[in-house]
């Protein structure tokens, strides 16, 4: 009984002292906006659409980001250029619904959609938080500099014929009798 009381008391008192002693520890708070915090490159902030190293839109409108999105805030429509390259006709993110979970980035097979360290996205009107492709598309490659989906994929597009993708043989001549 006595040891119980003693243990309890010392435990409480030690706790009180430990917490009290934090009075002399420097606060962790960063005084944003007076002080700009360091944002890590993989911070999950504002979403952008990047371009491939050749300067073309990376997004191929495969819809995987949209289906991965837990709040369903991405809507897009596929379209195609004359030479078979897929791209989004429109690509809309409703940032007023976005929870910055980064699932879209993980789902993206072409590294097109990426989250950036920018988190300063407040708006006075919710309508202004709806971003279209024109707002989302940046000029660079974002975090991934080398990847170009169409250089790997077998689909023929303008400037890349069948058999010109990575690890592809020249197209078969079906009429050939050679083995």
């Amino acid at each position: 009984m006595l040891t119980l009381i003693k243990d309890t008391l010392t435990s409480q008192v030690v706790t009180l002292w430990r917490v009290f002693s934090h009075l002399w520890v420097k606060a962790d708070t960063v005084e944003y906006p007076d002080v700009q915090p360091y944002m890590f490159p993989r911070w999950r902030g504002r979403i952008i659409l990047s371009r491939d190293p050749d300067g073309e839109e990376r997004c191929v409108a495969c819809n995987l980001c949209a289906v991965a999105c837990p709040v369903d805030c991405i809507a897009l429509q596929k379209t195609e250029d004359e030479e078979g390259r897929w791209y989004p006709e429109f690509f809309r993110i409703n940032f007023s619904r976005c929870i910055m979970c980064g699932f879209c980035e993980e789902a993206c097979p072409t590294n097109a959609i990426q989250l950036t360290p920018d988190f300063e996205m407040a708006e006075y009107k919710r309508q202004d938080m709806v971003w279209e492709k024109e707002d989302l598309l940046i000029d660079g490659t974002g975090k991934y500099h080398d990847y170009n989906f169409y250089r790997v994929a077998g689909k023929k597009i303008g400037g890349k014929d069948k058999g010109e993708a990575r690890n592809e043989a020249v197209p078969v001549n079906v009429r050939s009798l050679l083995p």
């Binding site: 009290f20 934090h22 520890v25 606060a27 962790d28 708070t29 005084e31």
Partner: peptide, 8 residues
Amino acid sequence: LSFWQERL
């Protein structure tokens, strides 16, 4: 409270 919790 914030001082004891290392805040401002």
